[in-house]
Write a protein that binds this DNA or RNA. Structure first.
Length: 466
RNA sequence: GCUCCCUUCGUCUAGAGGCCCAGGACAUAGCCCUCUCAAGGCUGUAACACGGGUUCGAAUCCCGUAGGGAGCGCCA
């Protein structure tokens, strides 16, 4: 049997890392087993669903490279089908009309709570409700009253629910629209979903859904309820910490593969391996190995992993990411050699592509502004004189590349009887404006002779007569 | 309140009765390397929630307790 998984987000909020991780698990499981991955947008709550949220879901999935084999389906486009199934269940006696009003039910609930009982529908209309003037009935599913439902969950193991604990849930509102638990059941059945991978906040819904599936003559899928992701402080993920749109990670300069790698390791591991390529993840992942406990989102580790991916990636593959970040700064270049050179020089000193772009601005601007503190430290005490001599040597260089620059600076340092630092720092400040940059030879090699000399001249002028 | 779920270093995790006075990673501290910053290497601090069992032997099995979470909606 071919595995069919699905990701079914509801567009009532931003797609955040929690949703992305369940999507990732579903996608990985499908890829791993050679199955099919479906995207389904659960937009039956028309008041809270937004176009914007749908857009983030679609763009986010694309950015992450979690392509769906089928879909996106929209539940709002399947209302006819839901209505037909409801009619069928009504006719078969598997569902019934309930004329109780919200007010009455709320009163009952309050009493039950006062008596410290589990609030539940008392079954007033189960034996046959009486139509009342002015009351549009809802439709309830006739849940079995005896026996138990056993969920063989792939991550939690066997979980048993007594039917006596379950009441008759509403599957259609008084305005005729179907409710969530019912739509899920019909969709999973119609779409041939074999494995439902979702957040464990749905574990309690599972027995009801299974009962409906059974009533409809369908075989319930296999379930896997994965733990939630907590904020960095261990509290539930909310807008206040961590729960930002996935697209925000793109803006911040994270690589999709790094985010995915981080997320897959939240609740799952294979021995001691930390860094996974997409292919390695697919080859190693099994939903059965996912942990049961919730885990806290750790931004520092994500940062570390992002850098790991930056360092392991082909420089050419990072060029589009660098350019995208440069454009955000109002800079750009199509010089492939320069861009790849910068990536090679900067990737071990930046944790995100955004940071890399920020640190590389001096390669793309005409003139740099020199940090006064850096100037004070490195142009004083002979620094300026050193700079003059460096300029002479560099101007006289035949070939201009990292190796020749390296040779010239080293030779000068040796002649001065000083460490390379004495020579490199003044130059670094002059050409980059700060005391921090990639190795000086690489930096000058990429910058080019013209700009290097011009910046040294400018620095010399600004350093004045002192 | 009731039902269901969960519990190894600050964080993510390895661990499926002896290999564990608990291993790796992030973070953190120190050292090394070094033209700056990094990256990298080495070393350190740091955990089996608690209490009972079962067993020759338990982080691993069982039962409680505590703590956390979810559900109990004409939300998804």
């Amino acid at each position: 049997m071919t595995v069919v998984t699905r990701f079914a987000p509801s567009p009532t909020g931003m797609l955040h890392v929690g949703g992305v991780r369940t999507a990732l698990f579903s996608w990985l499981y499908a890829r791993r087993t050679g199955g099919k991955f479906i995207l389904r947008v659960e937009d039956t709550d028309r008041e809270r669903s937004t176009e914007e949220a749908v857009r983030v879901i679609l763009e986010g999935m694309t950015w992450l490279g979690l392509a769906a084999d089928e879909g996106p389906y929209y539940q709002t486009q399947r209302f006819d089908r839901y209505r037909a199934v409801i009619a069928q269940m009504l006719a078969a006696g598997q569902a019934y009309h309930c004329y109780c009003t919200k007010e009455e039910l709320e009163a009952v609930r309050a009493e039950q709570m006062a008596r410290k009982e589990k609030p539940r529908y008392p079954g007033t209309c189960r034996a046959g409700g009486t139509p009342r003037a002015g009351v549009e009935p809802v439709v309830r599913f006739r849940n079995p009253q005896d026996g138990a439902v056993v969920v063989e969950d792939l991550v939690h193991g066997t979980v048993t629910f007594q039917n006596a604990e379950l009441d008759d849930l509403i599957i259609a509102r008084s305005d005729g629209t179907p409710t969530y638990n019912f739509c899920v059941v019909v969709d999973d059945m119609d779409m041939g979903v074999t494995h439902v991978i979702r957040g464990d906040d749905h574990l309690n819904n599972t027995p009801r859904q299974m009962n409906m599936l059974l009533a409809l003559g369908a075989t319930p899928p296999t379930y896997a309820h994965v733990p939630m992701i907590l904020g960095p402080d261990g509290a539930k993920l909310s807008k206040r910490h961590g729960a930002v749109s996935v697209l925000q990670y793109e803006e911040e300069g994270y690589l999709p593969d790094a985010l995915l790698n981080y997320l897959v390791r939240l609740g799952w591991a294979r021995g001691d391996q930390e860094v996974f390529t997409r292919e390695e993840m697919i080859a190693a992942f099994d939903i059965r190995d996912v942990n049961k406990a919730a885990s806290a989102f750790n931004p520092e580790k994500l940062l570390w992993l992002n850098q790991q991916h930056m360092m392991h990636a082909e420089p050419a593959a990072l060029v589009p990411h660098l350019r995208a970040q440069l454009r955000r700064l109002g800079l750009d270049s199509d010089n492939q050699v320069l861009l790849e050179g910068i990536i090679l020089a900067q990737r071990e000193r930046a944790k995100t592509m955004k940071e890399m772009a920020l640190n590389s601005r001096f390669f793309f601007v005409e003139t740099v502004e020199i940090d006064p503190k850096a100037a004070a430290k490195h142009f004083a005490g002979g620094g300026k004189e050193t700079l003059i001599r460096v300029r002479e040597r560099l101007a006289a260089l035949g070939d201009w590349n990292a190796a020749s620059v390296h040779g010239a600076l080293n030779a000068l340092a040796a002649e001065l009887g000083a460490g390379l630092g004495k020579v490199a720092q003044p130059v670094r400040v002059a050409v980059t404006g700060t005391a921090v940059s990639p190795p000086i030879d690489l930096t000058l090699g990429l910058l080019g002779r013209e700009r290097t000399l011009a910046r040294i001249d400018a620095a010399l002028r600004s350093a004045g007569g002192g």
